[in-house]
Simulated assay, not measured.
Amino acid sequence: MVCLNDCWDEEALQKERNKIMELSKQNARCHERCCRFLAAAGSLLNDSYRITAEYVDAGKIARYATRLAGKEFRARKQGRGTETVRFLSAVTAQGITTYKNTPQALCERIYLVEDEYGAVSRLLMNAIRSHALAAGLDIISCYCISSPFEKLEHVLIPEIGVGFLTANRYHPFDIECYRHIHAKRFMDAEGLRSKKQRLSFNRKAIGELLGEASRLLAEAKEVHDELETCYTTHMDFDKVNEKSTQLLNVFKSIYQSKK
């Protein structure tokens, strides 16, 4: 732990105590409200998933995943592969941000699953995940930010250069891919049509909720910047640099002793 408390002018900060406390409260309120909007959006996303899941042919998805695994996966080692969990997207002050270049940097071939509601892709990605791990492949599993413990959206397998991505209005992934897979081929389109009005309502509400969450994050950033200014104005950066030099010398000493 590196403590920098002795690098600021405590007496000067005490004079701004009330302002600092108020800004801290404002920042916390923005984040709390943002979390509530995100939770509401997540609830509607899950509602849309449950609606569409009733019209999915799970057996057809399982058979397709088995054929796909037979084509792409070859056992690399004995035993089960390892799994790393990551996120590719996040709700930020600039809206939903997705690291679209990461899959392309790690995988030469991308299978892109076009699935607006996630009912098909969730089953397909979980099946692909299971087949890959059983084949001894090391994978990167990327979950949905609204359901981080349940909804698997992307599976990347860098060691064989193959990735599987889910594309929808929140992360469209307008990238060049090896093959497109359309969710509709695994769904009862006629039955789903009867739920069109409810799904449309959810979609619009989700957009509003996510937009407000991003706006609150932007507001929190502005408050944080103002709060930070209170501290930087009364910071002795010569002392900070001195501590940095001392810390670097410690690292150098440790490094030299290990050589």
Rank of each mutant, 00 (worst) to 15 (best):
K195D: 08
C3G: 09
F186C: 09
L216K: 00
Y143L: 01
S24I: 04
A205W: 08
L124Q: 07
L38F: 04
R80P: 03
D138G: 01
I51W: 08
K71P: 02
K19V: 08
I61H: 14
R67T: 09
E11N: 14
R179L: 12
T229F: 11
C7Y: 04
N27V: 09
K151D: 03
E32H: 12
Y49P: 00
C230L: 06
Q246S: 11
F201E: 12
N249L: 15
C34S: 10
S200K: 09
E159Y: 03
T245S: 12
D115C: 01
T233Q: 14
F173W: 13
A93Q: 13
E242N: 12
T233W: 10
A12V: 05
C35F: 08
E16N: 15
A28F: 13
R17I: 10
K60R: 15
I206T: 01
S214Q: 02
I61V: 14
L45D: 11
T97E: 14
Q26V: 08
M1Q: 08
G191W: 03
A119V: 04
G161F: 01
I140Y: 07
F73H: 01
M125C: 04
R179I: 07
G207H: 05
H31Q: 13
L209K: 00
C107N: 11
K195R: 14
F186P: 10
E11V: 05
V162W: 06
T233I: 09
S147K: 05
R169N: 06
T52P: 04
S48M: 10
F164V: 02
A41Q: 03
V120C: 05
S48F: 06
R67Y: 15
R86S: 09
I110P: 09
R215L: 08
Q256K: 15
G70A: 15
T166L: 02
V240H: 03
A105H: 12
I51N: 05
V113F: 02
L227V: 05
I51Y: 09
R193M: 15
S130N: 14
V85Q: 10
L248N: 05
S244N: 12
Y49I: 02
K252R: 13
V223D: 00
F186L: 04
L156K: 10
P103A: 01
L216N: 00
N249Y: 09
V162D: 13
T92L: 02
